[in-house]
Design a protein around this nucleic acid. Structure first.
Length: 278
DNA sequence: ACTGTCAAGAAGTGTT
DNA sequence: AACACTTCTTGACAGT
């Protein structure tokens, strides 16, 4: 279902297309009439907001234009001259925020998306790209400061902060959500690095112990210990009898338990030993 | 100047 | 409501 809105508000000629069910994002633009080939949108964000999905349009199709940009800190004027399709990037939007000037250009795709709403033709069920607001330095700094104090906000704090920063409470909420996620991600990355180092240390330790074992085996072959043939010892770990009748070869299973206990290994646990690599 | 790539971050959606 | 996951926008940068 497509809706076309023609509006004329105190001299401003607004021609707004609202496609509710268009399927494709990229739609070719064909101005419906020569009289309506110019679109002047005040507060472009509100336009996008009004045409996008939840949470901005809970009650179905609605289109509200706030000429003063009441809910946003940005007052935008986007002029789309639909008769000059040769220069899609020529659209300029100017932002003002208490002296902090910001600029951005609309991509050709964005223009097409908006324009497709204007033309009102083509497919249905398209979801208009959300317009992403870039927080200015002041807002970011303020949010960061608040995050340091408490990483979560109660509704009152959220409202107050939103009002203070001229943002919607939802934006503040999302910012804190993303900020918490980034903190967690950073922590996870640090943990990962830590575990990597531990793994490396353990690998090295393992190699060292293997080498040591080989050396001890070689030593044992050259200088066999005297073990009385009558003595049988139960190995606590492999539960094998050693010493009784078996000749001491190079096999691990035949290694006399007394020997392995004689060469007392020193186990290294990187989790308990912060002095090494970790 | 243009284009492709990438990281950061804003926002949407579904789950707990 | 918070979170995890995802999508999408944006700006910076490198290569041409």
């Amino acid at each position: 279902m497509d809706l076309d809105h023609d509006a004329s508000i105190s001299g401003l000629h607004l021609v707004l297309g609202l496609a509710l069910t268009s399927k494709t994002h990229k739609e070719t633009l064909t101005p419906s009439s020569p009289q309506s080939n110019k679109v002047v949108v005040d507060d472009h964000f509100d336009l996008i907001r009004a045409t996008s999905k939840k949470p901005y349009s809970e009650d179905g199709p609605s289109l509200t234009l706030a000429l003063s940009g009441e809910n946003y800190n940005l007052i935008n004027q986007v002029t789309l001259d639909l008769s000059t399709q040769t220069s899609p990037l020529s659209t300029v939007s100017s932002f003002s925020d208490g002296g902090v000037k910001r600029e951005r250009e609309l991509s050709s795709e964005e223009i097409e998306r908006v324009s497709s709403r204007v033309s009102g033709d083509e497919d249905e069920d398209a979801t208009i790209a959300r317009k992403k607001l870039r927080l200015n330095k002041n807002q970011s700094a303020m949010l960061e400061e608040n995050f340091k104090q408490h990483s979560t906000l109660n509704p009152k704090q959220k409202q107050a902060l939103a009002k203070q920063l001229n943002l919607r409470p939802r934006q503040v909420e999302v910012w804190f959500q993303n900020r918490r996620a980034r903190t967690k991600l950073k922590q996870t990355e640090m943990d990962c690095e830590f575990l990597k180092k531990c793994c490396e240390t353990l690998t090295d330790e393992n190699m060292r112990l293997q080498k040591e074992l080989q050396e001890l085996k070689a030593l044992k072959l050259s200088q066999p210990l005297y073990i009385p043939m009558s003595a049988t010892t139960m190995c606590p770990s492999c539960e094998r009898l050693s010493g009784g009748g078996s000749s001491g070869g190079a096999s691990n299973k035949r290694t006399p338990f007394s020997m392995s206990m004689a060469a007392k290994p020193h186990f290294y646990n990187p989790f308990n030993n912060p002095s090494a690599a970790c």
